[in-house]
Amino acid sequence: MSADDAVSDPAVRQNAAQLATGDRTDTLLQTDDLVKQFGGFTAADSVDFAVEEGELRCLIGPNGAGKSTLLKLVTGALEPTDGRIYYDGTDITDLAPHERVARGISMKFQVPSVYSDLSVRENVRLPVQRFATGDERARRIEAAIDAAGLAGYEDVPASALSHGQQQQLEIGMAAALDPDLLLLDEPVAGLSVEERDGIAERITRLSEEAGIAFVVIEHDTDFVGRIADEVTVLHQGEVFREGPIEAIESDPAVQRIYLGGEGDGAA
């Protein structure tokens, strides 16, 4: 990858510097030179990645590009080898995962991670009980179940839900944390067209009504085009391209990396 392929580095660094000094911008999340190595393999290579407040951004790239790794670094599920992560004006690199949740970062994993033994209501209660009690808690739980499209299923164990309903439930759980930034790892993998439409609608509604910023990992470009304002392409652990989906889709270098050729950046 040539130097021309990198995103505008000076701007990113200025942003990070502003965040580090507490000088607020509209940038919600900013990673600065983020590196993650697993033994000799570099899964994230000096990644500078930014998300604006309320933005809906998709993260695409071939398998092994480092997409899930980047999200796990942001949530604290993985510790970076090097680099810093800034969120809402503060350095969160050394915070524990639950402390990042408390600041407003929430994530839905690639494999549906609902609690199969617990009922739908209990699943939603877990994120809500962190900050709400009494009537407020009951109200928020009902609202989250409604928002997930699972009204009428309150007392059903999550194991009895369909795959699509489990994905809906998990997005509902992540949204019930009242986040400012919601990270979704392949939320429509293995779903039917109708179920995909339902999830797309829920994501756009949450973005518009609650003002939540989203980072969504997804391979399906139709789905990406439907929900995303902006797209970031990761390749071999580096940010390869950023821009609107139309520009990204027609970029020959992006097409080449998806088809297995070398991205030479001669777009």
């Binding site: 604290g76 599920a77 949740v101 991670s113 609690y115 199969s116 033994d117 877990l126």
Partner: peptide, 25 residues
């Protein structure tokens, strides 16, 4: 109890519990 809810979540899947804001430690 809230603690019991957290404990049951942690038994089943502590990674998701952390993502749901539970201080698993």
């Amino acid at each position: 109890t809230d603690y019991g809810m957290r404990a049951r979540a942690v038994i089943q899947d502590d990674r998701t519990a952390r993502a749901m804001g539970v201080d698993t430690e």
